[in-house]
Each structure stands twice: as C-alpha cells, then as structure tokens.
Amino acid sequence: YKPCFVCQDKSSGYHYGVSACEGCKGFFRRSIQKNMIYTCHRDKNCVINKVTRNRCQYCRLQKCFEVGMSKESVRND
C-alpha cells in the first residue's frame, strides 16, 4: 500500500476512498459519526504528519477531506 495520504505513516489499506493508516481511519470515522466540530488555534494550515497529526484535529480533518476521504462511505453502525 501507499503511505497514509493524510499523515504519511504506514498505511493499513484503503479506507474511505484513500490509502490511510489505522489512526487516521479511526479519527475520520469518529469525527464523522459524532459530527465533531473542531477549531484550529493557529492559522488553519498546520502541518499534518506522523509526529504532528494529534496536535490539531481541525487541520487533520481538513486534510482528510483534501486527500479525498469520503464521509458518505462512513457507516453509522
């Protein structure tokens, strides 16, 4: 598999339409299922990588959408 499109960590396969790691897969699923609203405490362009991905949930979710993750493919079960 290609590296995670969101944070470049080791991917566990294709999730919600893109190559993603377990961490970003779970983060995206929880964010969508719980209708989470995050805020960025900087200027909405935080670097998201394996080391920084937990620092800003707003920018991490934005990057999930930017790389093509589909909220329609998240099931509500």
Rank of each mutant, 00 (worst) to 15 (best):
C40N: 00
K63W: 01
E66Y: 07
V67H: 04
V74E: 10
S31T: 14
C24T: 02
K2W: 05
G68R: 02
C4S: 01
I37N: 12
F5N: 04
G13I: 05
R60W: 14
G23I: 05
N35T: 12
G23F: 05
V51P: 06
E22Y: 04
I37P: 08
T39N: 11
R30H: 07
Y14K: 11
C56N: 00
C40P: 02
Y14H: 14
N76K: 11
Y58Q: 06
E66I: 08
Q33C: 06
H41G: 10
K2A: 05
R60N: 01
V74D: 13
Q62W: 06
S12R: 05
C46S: 03
Q57F: 13
N49F: 04
G23S: 14
D77M: 11
C59F: 01
K50R: 14
K50I: 15
P3K: 12
N76V: 12
R30S: 02
L61H: 03
C64A: 05
C24H: 00
C7A: 00
I37E: 12
T52R: 02
G68E: 02
R30N: 00
H41M: 13
V18Y: 05
M69K: 00
M69T: 03
C59S: 05
N76A: 13
N49Y: 04
L61V: 03
K2L: 07
C24G: 01
E22R: 02
F65C: 06
R75W: 13
G26T: 10
Y58K: 07
Q33N: 13
F28S: 01
V67T: 07
K63M: 09
V51H: 12
C59Q: 00
V6C: 00
Y58I: 00
G17S: 06
T52Y: 00
Q62T: 11
Q62H: 14
V18N: 03
N76C: 08
C4K: 00
N76Q: 13
C24E: 01
E22A: 06
Y38K: 08
F27I: 02
E22G: 05
K50P: 13
V67L: 08
K63G: 03
S12T: 13
K34W: 12
L61G: 03
T39E: 10
Y16I: 07
E72M: 08
G13R: 05
Y16A: 09
N35M: 07
S19P: 09
G13S: 09
K25Y: 09
K63L: 05
V74I: 12
K10M: 13
F65H: 06
Q8M: 12
E72A: 08
V74T: 10
S70C: 09
R29V: 13
F28R: 00
K50Q: 15
V51E: 15
G26V: 08
R30T: 02
K34D: 15
S73P: 11
K71Q: 11
F27D: 02
I37L: 09
M69D: 03
C56F: 00
C64L: 02
L61C: 02
T52A: 13
K25W: 11
C21Y: 01
K34N: 13
K10L: 12
T39A: 10
V67N: 03
F27C: 02
K50F: 15
G68C: 02
V67P: 03
F5D: 05
V51G: 09
F27L: 01
F27W: 01
N54V: 14
F28L: 03
G68H: 02
Y58V: 02
Y38M: 04
N76D: 11
C7Q: 00
S70H: 12
Q62K: 14
Q57S: 14
Y14R: 06
Y16W: 07
C59G: 02
C21W: 01
R30M: 04
S19D: 05
K50A: 14
L61N: 00
F27H: 03
Y38H: 04
D43A: 12
N76H: 07
V74N: 09
C56Q: 01
Q57C: 13
C4F: 02
G26Q: 08
T52S: 12
D77Y: 12
C64Y: 00
S11F: 04
A20Y: 03
V6A: 02
N49D: 15
E22P: 05
V67I: 07
Q8C: 09
M69N: 02
C59E: 00
V51W: 15
N35Y: 05
D43M: 09
C59K: 00
R42N: 14
D43N: 09
F5H: 04
Y16N: 09
Y1L: 08
G13N: 07
S11W: 01
S73E: 13
V47N: 08
Q62N: 09
G23D: 15
S11H: 03
I32Y: 09
R75A: 14
G68L: 01
E22K: 06
S11Y: 04
L61R: 01
K63R: 10
G13M: 09
